[in-house]
């Protein structure tokens, strides 16, 4: 990107493509996770109790996938929620407060979810 001369970029923050693409990549990851989870619930033998349910998440590959999906979900939700605030909330002060709340809310959930996962 040129930032000098008469061809310099003078408009836009240029995060549009990054947000658009990351929201789609994270969405596909979550769909794959959903399919993997439903498939295991349906295909595993035995009654759907604690052992079967916790056993699904105890497998190392599932921990791997779940951890990535927790991060993907947070990033996906951040892009989406920020879009909502940018569309409807015009006073910058209030928008900043809501954006900070969004980040705090999501980071807290990422920490909690990861903690649960690592204990398994």
């Amino acid at each position: 990107m040129t930032d000098y001369g008469n061809k310099r970029t003078i408009v836009g923050a240029h995060y549009g493509m990054r947000d658009w693409l990351s929201q789609r990549v994270t969405a596909i990851l979550m769909v794959l996770f959903t399919i993997a989870l439903i498939a295991q619930v349906l295909l595993k033998h035995g009654p759907l109790g604690y052992d079967l349910w916790a056993g699904i998440f105890a497998a190392q590959w599932m921990k791997f996938l779940t951890f990535v999906v927790i991060l993907a979900l947070a990033y996906h939700a951040w892009v989406g929620m920020r879009n909502i605030w940018m569309d409807y909330i015009k006073p910058v002060g209030l928008r900043l407060v809501l954006e900070v709340f969004t980040i705090v809310w999501l980071l807290g959930c990422v920490g909690w979810g990861t903690q649960v996962l690592w204990r398994l």
């Binding site: 109790g49 604690y50 349910w53 807290g108 959930c109």
Partner: peptide, 26 residues
């Protein structure tokens, strides 16, 4: 639906936490 899921995310994590952590929490 996205906004609702964002607001209820802690409830979803609570579901995850209690359902997998131990038989007592399950």
């Amino acid at each position: 639906s996205g906004a609702v899921m964002f607001l209820l995310l802690p409830l979803v994590i609570w579901f995850f936490d209690t359902s997998v952590s131990s038989e007592v929490s399950f």
